[in-house]
Simulated assay, not measured.
Amino acid sequence: MSRRSSLTVTAAFAVSLAAVAGFAPTAAAGPLDLAWTALPPLFQEQEQARTQDRLTVTVADTNITRADGTYELKCGPTGGTHPEARSACTRLDEFAGEGKDPFAPVPEGQMCTMQMGGPATARVTGTWQGRSVDATFSRKNGCEISRWQNLVPVLPAARG
Rank of each mutant, 00 (worst) to 15 (best):
T127R: 03
V9R: 09
E45Y: 09
A38S: 14
T26H: 07
A38N: 05
F137S: 00
H82M: 08
L32V: 13
V20W: 05
C75I: 02
G126K: 03
G79R: 00
V152A: 02
T90W: 11
Q44I: 15
W128D: 14
A67K: 10
D53M: 07
G109T: 04
R139E: 07
T58E: 15
R147W: 08
E45M: 12
C75H: 01
A96H: 14
W36N: 12
P40R: 00
G69I: 03
A19E: 15
G142K: 00
Q46G: 15
E47A: 15
Q110Y: 11
S146M: 11
L151G: 09
T70M: 08
E47I: 15
C112K: 03
C112H: 11
T81M: 01
A14Q: 04
W128C: 03
V133S: 11
P153Y: 07
F103Y: 03
V59Y: 00
G160M: 13
G160L: 11
K74A: 11
T37M: 10
S5A: 13
P25T: 05
R86K: 08
T136G: 14
V124C: 06
R147D: 01
T127L: 04
V124L: 01
E94P: 08
A60Y: 00
V106H: 05
A49W: 03
Q110S: 11
G76L: 00
P77M: 07
E84K: 04
L55I: 13
A67L: 09
P25H: 08
P107N: 01
T121S: 05
T65G: 14
D101S: 03
P119F: 10
M1V: 11
V152T: 09
S138Q: 05
A135D: 03
A35T: 02
A29S: 12
P83M: 09
Q115Y: 02
G30N: 05
L55H: 02
R50G: 01
K74P: 02
D101Q: 01
Q52L: 15
E94R: 02
R86A: 15
G126C: 06
T8G: 10
V154E: 07
L34R: 05
K100I: 07
M114F: 03
A35M: 10
P156L: 04
L7M: 15
A120T: 12
Q115M: 14
A24F: 06
L7A: 13
S5Q: 11
Q46A: 14
T56F: 00
P153R: 02
P153W: 09
D61M: 05
A157I: 13
K140F: 15
L7N: 07
D33K: 00
A35W: 05
V57K: 04
P105D: 12
L32G: 15
L17Q: 07
G99P: 13
S132T: 15
P83L: 02
F43N: 14
G142W: 01
A122Q: 09
F23R: 08
R50S: 02
E94H: 04
A14H: 06
R3G: 12
